[in-house]
Amino acid sequence: MQEILRLIIAKGLRTEPAPEPDPALLATTRRLGEEVRRCFNGALTIRHVDAGSCNGCELEIHAVNNPFYNLEGLGIRFVASPRHADVLLVTGPVSRHMEEALRRTYEATPDPKLVVALGDCGCTGGVFGESYASCGRVSNVIPVDVAVPGCPPSPLAIMRGILTAIAIGR
């Protein structure tokens, strides 16, 4: 126990400043109503959906929760069910085998909802493109509000994307 406490104290607080929202990432001109933004009040819940990624983007989603980035410290939490989520964070080109699951997840997410497409694959289909097995970009399957490029996008880019989604309409 002593050693655990020693390490916690020795490491100290490592969290770095969060990035600013970036309107250039907006894939939509949709605006959230003032009332809704007041409800979110900067805090929101995210459901991640891997729609067919190579798992590189997932590594960076894990990273945003490490103490350096500490997304939860901003009041933004990952939740276990789309029914509890405000934002869907979708990675990968959408494989045809995930098309239906993604649609259903989208439908299960209560309104108002935001969708952030993550990574070159989510934005454009990336290296996998469209084929007999891939629907390509996320917006080919569900409406997308914010698209974050990168292969994979850095943790800061992911955070910026999420913060941009919340700031829609500001």
Binding site: G52, H97, F128
Partner: peptide, 11 residues
């Protein structure tokens, strides 16, 4: 499994 099949070998 097979949900993430995205045609890699064909590509």
């Amino acid at each position: 499994l097979g949900y993430t099949h995205k045609g890699v070998e064909k590509l």
